[in-house]
Amino acid sequence: MSESVRMVVVLTVIAMVSAGILSQVYSVTSGIIEENAARELESSVFEVLPGISKVEIIKASPQDRLVEDDPKEMREEEQRITLIYQGLDDSGKAVGYAFVGEANGYGGAVRVLVGVGEETNKIVGLKILSHAETPGLGSRIEEETFRSQFIGKSVQDPIALGKDIDSISGATVSSRAVSEAVRRGFDEATAAYKGGN
């Protein structure tokens, strides 16, 4: 075997074996990873909606239609679907709903989970799901004093930095990311929950 053929063969075999192993590992772990993420999100819903005993997931598409003949368009549609977590109490009555909002912060995406009261339509709880902000500065968005500013806001409120939300000093970008995430998610969720239900 000439040297160049050997090089090609060896590299190809190594890459193929690697791909084979990784696809096996992926198929073993991907289920667990998704389950973890779903379970974690669900347990977070309990934190932002006090007094609930059960969570139900509602899928709402803003246009209320699915284009099924075009796979590409279907995939895009899939991403536009808003997931809403409805919190029920012991008797099965809806207490409120929660949604995930996302916006870009200083170090990457900031994801928040917001709980809204069923009747009041006001925010009752807010949790930062994930962020990559600077420790000690931007990470202070997780603090109670900042998060509590959002409690009691309804979808008609501006929920904007400098208007009804005070920024954390030294962490304007991170603070704005949270308020934007809430703002955007709130609009989508209200439209989907109240409109498409």
């Binding site: 090089m7 192993i21 590992v25 992926y26 991907s30 973890n36």
Partner: peptide, 27 residues
């Protein structure tokens, strides 16, 4: 492993193990 392709071969091997760690740690 032929000498001329040793670096890419090493990197594929290393990357495979890293991905395994990554997936298992995530799970």
């Amino acid at each position: 492993i032929p000498d001329k392709v040793r670096i890419p071969s090493f990197i594929i091997i290393i990357a495979t193990f890293v991905t395994i760690v990554d997936l298992f740690m995530n799970a």
